[in-house]
Nucleic acid binder design. Structure first.
Lengths: 162, 162
DNA sequence: AGCATTCCTTACTTTTTCGTCAAGTATCCA
DNA sequence: TGGATACTTGACGAAAAAGTAAGGAATGCT
């Protein structure tokens, strides 16, 4: 259970665009790549995925570049992760109805709901965070995360008393 | 953000052992492999990881096989997933102190806490489920999952009113 | 119109992960 | 003690993911 390179780097590129959002300026591919320390070719592929999904807009030619298609405050991380996943997931489950009910090989054991439920939990947590919240300091983001997480902790506290 | 083949299959093999727990019987490699539809060679490798981690015990020779090292009710899924992850994670972050604070390349953006926090949320959710709870019907497991998830929902309900 | 800039697209290479095989070793039973 | 059973372990090949490279297409400037 870990996030892929696509997800992490794609998200980072989006954060760069969110930072540039205030200026209303376009960010060139080289700028994005430099700031995240990855090759222009690689960043280009990531950006194309995000463009295709309608999350960012691109402008070709001189003075071109990338910019967010919507305000950063209206872009939630669950959407971002879902888009960046699709590339790799599509092959596995061609028709992913809803979440991914059909992906898991049919079996009579109780594992399928675990996998599906786990994804739901992750998606719900990600839905609580917007791109705009990621451009602040690390402390703020961390606090936000633990605020979300705290809604989940009562059970743990009760149990950890044994 | 998805679970790897190691994680899914390893977990399934453990569920098989949990089912056999009541009989106090050992399960041979072939039995496990047959019931989960994977090759004996593959299942063997998974089982060895679990043996090495101390989660299951193995008995060699005639009448040998595998059995859980602890009661299924005392094995939580977060531990299982962590063990099955380690194999692939070790390469990435040699010294994973605590969760995985050092894995993420040092950067000044706010993404690191997102990744770390996300893992914490997943781990906490998994910590609420034991192996014993997975041998019931799918409906029960599903209900258990949504019970855990519900602790997280108030925020979502508030927001979805816009 | 022509040229420079920048994104777009496809194909290829490398790396990592997944699964298989076969030889090795321990245990039990007759 | 000998043989059968069954786990152990390292090496190998295939498949998928990640990253790279190069030619094509659109845009703006002079």
């Amino acid at each position: 259970m870990k996030i892929s390179a696509h997800e992490e780097y794609g998200l980072r590129c989006l954060v760069q665009l969110a930072r540039a959002e205030a200026d209303g300026e376009f960010l060139r591919l080289n700028q994005i790549a430099d700031r995240e320390g990855l090759s222009p070719a690689n960043a280009g592929k990531l950006m194309w995925i995000l463009v295709k999904a309608g999350l960012v807009q691109s402008q070709r030619g001189a003075n071109g570049g990338y910019t967010l298609a919507r305000p950063a405050s209206e872009i939630r991380l669950n959407e971002v992760i879902r888009i960046l996943d699709e590339d790799t997931v599509d092959r596995f489950c061609k028709s992913h109805t809803g979440v991914l009910d059909a992906c898991i090989h049919t079996s009579d054991c109780g594992i399928r709901p675990v996998i599906v439920g786990l994804h739901e939990i992750v998606q719900n947590a990600l839905a609580e965070i917007t791109l705009a919240e990621l451009i602040g300091s690390e402390e703020n983001v961390d606090a936000r995360l633990h605020q979300i997480q705290k809604l989940q902790s009562p059970l743990r506290v009760m149990r950890s008393a044994n």
